[in-house]
Structures are given as structure tokens and as C-alpha cells.
């Protein structure tokens, strides 16, 4: 009988006891360790250290892209003078202004990771609907007002004017 024995990725000596698997949309990563290395790496508490490992996956995700980007690596942030090159080593930006300084490159990364490049808030969703109807209201009121003036229906025009004023001041 042939046994297929897996060897620990860390020490490459002992037999694997634990398979750690991370699954996300579009990727699956496996780490195979022996119990000794598991303890050594401080991975014996499944609660805590896994968040650390996620961090590494993200960094790999960013650094994957380094090849073929030589030009943008020479960029430097106008706000904090961090060179863009450093971002590929650490996966971290230097200051809020880096988002503007490196926008062209960052947008691609944001799109690939988040599938989006635009922040959406709960309040922006709530706001957007009434705002849209307000805009159509204003347009409608303006044309109504014009036709009311043409028809010399000044009572109606005054009422429409007041409503318009109210809407525009809101």
C-alpha cells in the first residue's frame, strides 16, 4: 500500500498535521503545517492569528502586480513625499493625499479588489431619490410657470413661483 505523506511547508521535515484553507471569491489558498511549526508560528489560536494571515494575502494581491509598472514606481506623493514604490513593498499608503497622487494606479487596484471605485453611503442612497424627483419637479414647475405667464394666469403663476422658490431654497 502506498501512502501519500505531505511534508510541512515550514520545516520541510515533519509530516503535515493541519491544513489551513482560506477561501474567498476567486481564490483558494492552502497552508500545510506540522503541529510543531503551527505552535512555533503562533497559529495555535485559530481566533487571533488568522486575521494576520488575511493581511498577507492582501499584500500578495497588491504586490502581484509589480511587474510592468516601472514608470508609475517613480511617482512621489505631493502630500507626504512617499514614493509609490514603497506601496508595493508594504501594501500601505503614506497619507490621505496619496489617494489623489497615485489615483491612476490605485483605481485599478481598488477596482480589482473591491469591484468598485466609488464609495456609497446609506445616506447617499436615501438622498438620491428625493433629489431626483426634486430636479424633475423644478423643471416641471418652470415650464408650468412659463405657460401660466403666457396664458396671463397670474394667480397660478404666483403660486408656482412661490413653490419654485421654496424648492430652490431647500
Amino acid at each position: 500500500m502506498v501512502y501519500n505523506i505531505m511534508i510541512c511547508e515550514n520545516c520541510k521535515i515533519r509530516q503535515v498535521s493541519v491544513h489551513i484553507t482560506q477561501i474567498g471569491q476567486g481564490y483558494k489558498k492552502e497552508i500545510n503545517l506540522c503541529l510543531f511549526c503551527l505552535n512555533e508560528k503562533g497559529l495555535n489560536s485559530s481566533f487571533v492569528y488568522l486575521s494576520d494571515m488575511l493581511g498577507n494575502v492582501i499584500k500578495e494581491f497588491i504586490t502581484m502586480d509589480k511587474a510592468g509598472r516601472k514608470k508609475s514606481l517613480e511617482l512621489v506623493c505631493g502630500g507626504c513625499s512617499m514614493p509609490f514604490d514603497r506601496f508595493f513593498e508594504t501594501g500601505l499608503l503614506g497619507c490621505p493625499e496619496c489617494y489623489d497622487s497615485f489615483e491612476f494606479e490605485l483605481k485599478k487596484i481598488l477596482h480589482r479588489f473591491h469591484g468598485s471605485t466609488k464609495h456609497i453611503t446609506d445616506s447617499s442612497i436615501r438622498m438620491s431619490k428625493p433629489q431626483l424627483s426634486e430636479i424633475t419637479d423644478v423643471k416641471k414647475l418652470q415650464t408650468d410657470l412659463q405657460s401660466a405667464v403666457k396664458e396671463e394666469n397670474f394667480e397660478k403663476a404666483a403660486e408656482l413661483r412661490d413653490r419654485l422658490k421654496l424648492l430652490l431654497n431647500m
Partner: peptide
Amino acid sequence: AGMAVRGFF
């Protein structure tokens, strides 16, 4: 999309 599971299998 955008969710991940981690743990010891």
C-alpha cells in the same frame, strides 16, 4: 462575492 472564510480544516 467579497466574503471570505478562514479556519482550520
